[in-house]
């Protein structure tokens, strides 16, 4: 047969070969259909591991307890028992190595998150003990009078 008939076929084969080579070079080996099939599963399998390796910053009260047992026990007896240490003390990260000391949030705004009075029927917020931060001892830190680990005790005057 004449070569002008074959030539387009060679061009088409060359294009296909180029696409296949490019695909091999550009697409990672672990890219494919995952557990959820064609519709929801296409992905790079290695990415799952990357997400698992994100650093844990909040180590929970169980972590704090290992060294600060006294504080932990005091908290567990108090009406504030369900509040995680790190909510006010900040994320533990690699404390005590890094950071050596944690930054404690003693601001009025922190306490006001829960204790600003909002009269909401149908929500537990409505039955929480609350004050109006605009009139209640303005300018003073809450911890002056209220001990945050156990609000039934008096605060630390400084």
């Amino acid at each position: 047969m004449k070569s002008h008939v074959w030539r387009p076929l060679f061009v088409a084969l060359l294009v296909i070969a180029l696409v296949l080579v490019a695909r091999k070079l550009l697409v990672p080996a672990d890219f494919g259909i995952g557990a959820r099939g064609y519709m929801y599963g296409w992905h790079r399998a290695g990415n799952e591991q990357q997400w698992k390796e994100v650093t844990v910053k909040y180590k929970t009260a169980q972590h704090c307890m290992q060294c600060h047992r006294d504080k932990y026990d005091e908290m567990k007896e108090s009406p504030h028992r369900n509040i995680n240490c790190e909510n006010c003390h900040g994320p533990a990260l690699n404390h005590p190595d890094d950071p050596h000391t944690l930054t404690i949030d003693r601001s009025r705004e922190l306490c006001a998150r829960c204790h600003t009075r909002l009269p909401y029927p149908g929500s537990n917020r409505g039955v929480m003990k609350g004050i109006d931060p605009k009139t209640h001892n303005v300018g003073l830190d809450c911890v002056t009078c209220h001990w945050p680990h156990d609000p039934r005790k008096e605060g630390h005057k400084r």
Partner: peptide, 20 residues
Amino acid sequence: CPVGATYQTADGVVLIDRKW
């Protein structure tokens, strides 16, 4: 997703591949 950058894992969580 046109490139397979967001996907569902076997345990049901939808993740995003930041590189992809």
